[in-house]
Computed example of a mutant assay.
Amino acid sequence: MPNTPHPARNDLQEAKAKNRTARETLAAIAESIAPLSEQWERINATLTDTPALISEIRHLRAEIEALRLNLANLAAAARATLAAYRDAESDPCSYLRDELSAQGWADGDRP
């Protein structure tokens, strides 16, 4: 699997701006129509979650990007190990050991 990042499916900045616009619009409506204030509070409570969700999506995207890079690096090290073995290098596994160590998987580092 090549390390080609997927394009962002949603523009999070745009989603955040639309959320803010929706909240401002509903606040203006709620001020002008008093009987809607209870409904506005419920809608506002729901819209309040959006910024936290956007933040979580950004965090998860960064985490996925780092994992994809680690996977690509491991695949490259494995390919280099196989090529070194075919070329009868004295320590073909050094490529794989070095990458595992760089990712914190050296002997004793992780279970």
Results as ranks from 00 to 15, higher is better:
residue 75 A to C: 03
residue 12 L to V: 01
residue 2 P to H: 06
residue 60 L to R: 11
residue 111 P to A: 15
residue 106 A to H: 08
residue 85 Y to R: 10
residue 77 A to N: 06
residue 84 A to H: 02
residue 73 N to T: 05
residue 48 T to S: 10
residue 46 T to D: 10
residue 102 A to D: 13
residue 45 A to S: 13
residue 81 T to E: 08
residue 32 S to W: 04
residue 33 I to H: 09
residue 56 E to S: 07
residue 79 R to H: 08
residue 48 T to M: 05
residue 91 D to K: 12
residue 38 E to P: 00
residue 59 H to M: 11
residue 54 I to K: 02
residue 2 P to Y: 04
residue 105 W to E: 01
residue 107 D to L: 11
residue 23 R to K: 13
residue 18 K to D: 14
residue 88 A to L: 12
residue 103 Q to D: 01
residue 60 L to K: 09
residue 41 E to T: 10
residue 69 L to I: 12
residue 25 T to D: 15
residue 34 A to T: 15
residue 39 Q to N: 08
residue 45 A to P: 03
residue 110 R to G: 03
residue 78 A to N: 07
residue 106 A to N: 04
residue 36 L to W: 13
residue 19 N to F: 01
residue 27 A to Q: 10
residue 93 C to M: 11
residue 17 A to R: 14
residue 84 A to D: 06
residue 23 R to N: 13
residue 63 E to H: 07
residue 11 D to I: 08
residue 8 A to F: 01
residue 35 P to G: 04
residue 95 Y to D: 01
residue 100 L to H: 01
residue 16 K to Y: 08
residue 70 N to G: 12
residue 89 E to K: 15
residue 49 D to F: 05
residue 19 N to E: 12
residue 52 A to E: 14
residue 108 G to M: 05
residue 3 N to K: 08
residue 56 E to G: 02
residue 9 R to H: 08
residue 103 Q to G: 06
residue 95 Y to F: 15
residue 99 E to H: 00
residue 14 E to Q: 13
residue 99 E to Y: 00
residue 55 S to W: 03
residue 68 R to Q: 15
residue 3 N to V: 06
residue 14 E to C: 00
residue 37 S to M: 11
residue 52 A to F: 04
residue 38 E to I: 09
residue 68 R to Y: 00
residue 66 A to G: 09
residue 87 D to F: 03
residue 23 R to Q: 15
residue 5 P to F: 01
residue 21 T to E: 14
residue 14 E to Y: 08
residue 24 E to N: 14
residue 61 R to H: 06
residue 55 S to V: 00
residue 26 L to F: 15
residue 56 E to T: 08
residue 72 A to C: 02
residue 48 T to A: 12
residue 51 P to V: 03
residue 13 Q to H: 10
residue 84 A to I: 00
residue 51 P to I: 00
residue 12 L to S: 03
residue 76 A to L: 11
residue 44 N to D: 15
residue 15 A to Y: 01
residue 93 C to N: 10
residue 71 L to S: 11
